[in-house]
Design a protein around this nucleic acid. Structure first.
Ligand SMILES: [Zn+2]
Ligand SMILES: [Zn+2]
Length: 177
DNA sequence: CTTCAAGGCCAC
DNA sequence: GTGGCCTTGAAG
C-alpha cells in the first residue's frame, strides 16, 4: 500500500485541498530503526473526503493602479520587510507564503501555523510529530490503518496520524532529502 | 533590526 | 497525550 497519489492530473476530482502541497516524498528517515515502520498512509477514508474550506485569499486587483495618490493598499498589510525569503517557495510553487499558510493542514485540516519538519502544517500536528519522533513512540492502529484524520478525529488514532504525517512528507531533517 | 522554524513549556 | 504559546538561535 502506498499513499494516495492524488495528483492534480485528474481533471475530474475537484480536490478540495491546498493549492499545492507536498505529497509523499519517500522518507529516507536517517533514524530508521524499525523494519516494520515501512507503512504508508493509505488515505483510507471510506467514502469520506475532507471538507476543506480552502480560503485562497490575496486576490490582488488585476488592475486598478491608476492613481498614485490612492491609498487602497489595504489588501494585506506588510509594513516594511516584505519581499524576503519566501522567494524560494514562491518561485518553485508559484504561490506566496501567505496563500500556503491560509490553506488547511494536509494532515488534519486545521489552520496551518507555519513550515514544520518539511511541510506546512498546523501547530498541533507539528507538536504531535515532535513528540512521536523524540520519544520514539510506536503507535499501532487498532483498526487496520483506516482511520480518518481530521481535527475532530486526530486524537483517536495517533498511529494513523503519524502515518499521515510521514505520508505528507514530514521528516526530522528538512535538509538532505 | 527582522522573520523563520526547532524545541521547550505547561495548563488542560 | 494534546496543543497553544514561548524561547532560542540561525539566517537575512
Ligand atoms: Zn494538522
Ligand atoms: Zn488508525
Amino acid at each position: 500500500m502506498k499513499c494516495l497519489s492524488l495528483t492534480p492530473s485528474s481533471p475530474r476530482l475537484p480536490l478540495p485541498q491546498s493549492p499545492i502541497q507536498q505529497r509523499h516524498i519517500n522518507f529516507p528517515m536517517p533514524t530508521h530503526q524499525s523494519p516494520n515502520l515501512g507503512r504508508q498512509y493509505t488515505g483510507a477514508a471510506p467514502g469520506a473526503l475532507y471538507s476543506a474550506p480552502l480560503d485562497l485569499r490575496e486576490s490582488h486587483n488585476p488592475n486598478a493602479i491608476g492613481h498614485p495618490d490612492s491609498k487602497d493598499v489595504k489588501d494585506d498589510e506588510r509594513p516594511a520587510t516584505d519581499l524576503q525569503q519566501h522567494s524560494v517557495l514562491a518561485a518553485q510553487s508559484g504561490i506566496t507564503r501567505q496563500q500556503l499558510i491560509n490553506s488547511p493542514c494536509p494532515i488534519c485540516g486545521d489552520k496551518i501555523s507555519g513550515f514544520h519538519y518539511g511541510i506546512f502544517s498546523c501547530e498541533s500536528c507539528k507538536g504531535f510529530f515532535k513528540r512521536t519522533v523524540q520519544n520514539k513512540k510506536n503507535y499501532v492502529c487498532m483498526r487496520g490503518s483506516t482511520c480518518t484524520v481530521s481535527t475532530s478525529t486526530r486524537k483517536k488514532c495517533p498511529a494513523c496520524r503519524f502515518d499521515k504525517c510521514l505520508c505528507m512528507g514530514m521528516k526530522l531533517e528538512v535538509k538532505l532529502r
